[in-house]
Design a protein around this nucleic acid. Structure first.
Lengths: 340, 340
DNA sequence: CTGAAAGCGCTTACAG
DNA sequence: CTGAAAGCGCTTACAG
């Protein structure tokens, strides 16, 4: 059927026009007469021609490739975001080139960024990675737009999209305090990340205002094993917390497993609240009360932001924050007459 | 620091050599004297030069991009595979360009494949997708290697890597029969997929050999909601199954949720066995007995296969099948003295 | 080993 | 609107 790699020159020959004309027909916004368009489309169809994206990228300086730096795909939040991101970008004519990075260390990220540049990506979306300032700076230097997804970075002028993490931490604390809990522990998100710190900060503010001090605060590092270990310790003592706010759902699942392992019932003997609302949170086995991160809207904003920066060359960094709501389920006691 | 987009010509000028010499220094296997190499490396370093992958791709015909077609990322098996695939490919100097596709319909896949070709990918890995014969054929026509991951297709000559699905189905059935179960139901994987059919076929063979007929067989479509619905129906009748073999873990979690919802205990009142062994299967809340798909080895084979085809031009299709083992956990009764 | 030159498949001023 | 030509940043025969 189709020839192997048809070029615009072959189409031109068949259509009886110049190669430039063919190019124009396939370039949105370029001018060509209706007659030319018709001839070219017909010939292209017959030959199975499609423009070579790479060649186009070379001359136009636009690869229509977005580099996505991710890790931590065991946390369901990221695959979900990845799929949404990819779909949204595909519709707009872009595709995602994946770069997997060691999560929290600057070591590997350096070479990842090198790679990224080699591919002439039009933009970079960094999810769940702490990019060193150097690298954000370097991307900027090269005029490559960067958007941090679900993470922010204070020391660099870079765009980011997050949920309202601090407010979210506050909401969880208010809910827990209203529920009459008096020994509230926090297994925090990684304190090397903005999300981990912000959620904790909001949580502590409200606790303080309520005249409580936290039963315990530990860094769960966003890792299942660490959170599990923390939970076991917390539950192993004579005096136990009556509620645990966990820095994300992924860790909260471990905490619930640990609670049951100790013979206790989440939502009855001890309340657990997570952060994210990944699909698994709503499944029967966990039924997790959690602060929802509105991932669809976060993705929309991220895509809008990066494409705007690419297409208009407007690189003014923007910080977008989207508010999420508490989703009530069975893992935490609901205060009398509570209406979110 | 770094200039915006340094070219080989600039490096050449600074090093006092020709542009070709610079190219050779960065082309593995090309010949250059030690002296030239040193001068060029020095100049490149100072300028922050890195070869443009896209330009290289244009002339060499190698983009070092692998197109990955995926969907269904809510099933943990795929993100896990994606991460492993990306890591393995990155080490070998390739990267993954993501194409998300509607799962089971040929409709959308068609345009996805068009896209794929536009980017001049060196190879295609198709996961959890049924490619139409046309498209496999077309890729072949263009000399683009294709490997199906976790899926096979009989009507086309295309490489694929799967686990031993039929054998896996047999193992599950043997285990369940040995456990004394006599009313074994099967919520099957999507019957439009080879994996779904093969697992079911193996399962039925053994049941038949044991003189049993299945309590029920339904197609769960690899979807959580469908599986949940099937399970509810199965449990709603006066006579219930005493075991359910579920076509993959993702659906098995739904089945376990349904069982508990009905006030029954998995592993006691009714045995459940899944297929995959995703990380979640080992978490306390599900503790799922399941037939492990050896994803690391599947990924290794996939990467080896596609790179071999790309780099040697050897396009002889190969079908690789990797045996997986049953992982015993709490969701199914273990036969007396059973040793896997 | 090395340089000059052609060419990969396009887009985009530049004339007409 | 249209064609001829230059050029994007490389690799790769081809001579030397």
């Amino acid at each position: 059927m189709a020839q192997s790699k048809v070029t615009s020159a072959e189409v031109a020959a068949r259509a009886g026009v110049s190669q430039s004309a063919v190019s124009r027909v396939f370039t949105p916004g370029a001018s060509a007469s209706a007659k030319t368009v018709a001839k070219v489309r017909k010939a292209a169809e017959e030959l199975g021609y499609r423009p070579n994206v790479l060649a186009r990228a070379m001359v136009s300086g636009r690869s229509r490739i977005i580099g996505l730096v991710v890790a931590y795909l065991e946390n369901q939040f990221y695959p979900v975001a990845l799929e949404l991101l990819s779909n949204a970008l595909q519709v707009r004519g872009y595709h995602i080139l994946i770069f997997t990075a060691p999560n929290s260390y600057d070591d590997g990220i350096d070479s990842v960024m090198q790679d990224l540049m080699d591919y002439q990506v039009d933009g970079i979306i960094a999810a769940s990675v702490s990019m060193s300032s150097d690298l954000s700076a370097r991307a900027k230097d090269l005029g490559i737009p960067v958007v941090l997804f679900n993470r922010s970075q204070d020391d660099v002028e870079v765009s980011n999209v997050t949920s309202a993490n601090r407010l979210g931490g506050r909401k969880v604390a208010e809910f827990l305090v209203a529920g009459g809990h008096e020994r509230i522990a926090h297994i925090a998100g990684w304190q090397g990340s903005s999300t981990g710190r912000d959620r904790q900060a909001g949580f502590l503010e409200v606790l303080k205002a309520a005249g409580q001090s936290p039963f315990a605060i530990v860094d769960g590092m966003y890792k299942r094993e660490v959170a599990m270990e923390c939970a076991r310790k917390l539950l192993g003592n004579a005096e136990r917390p009556d509620a645990i706010f966990v820095g994300n759902d992924h860790m909260a699942f471990a905490v619930i497993d640990a609670i049951r392992e100790a013979g206790l019932r989440p939502g009855h003997d001890i309340s657990v609240v997570g952060f994210d609302d990944v699909p698994l949170a709503s499944w029967g086995a966990y039924d997790l009360t959690t602060l929802r991160q509105p991932v669809e809207r976060m993705v929309e904003s991220t895509v809008d932001l990066i494409l705007r920066q690419i297409e208009s060359g407007d690189a003014a960094p923007e910080r977008i924050e989207i508010e999420g709501e508490l989703v009530l389920r069975g893992s935490a006691r609901i205060p009398e007459g509570w209406t979110s």
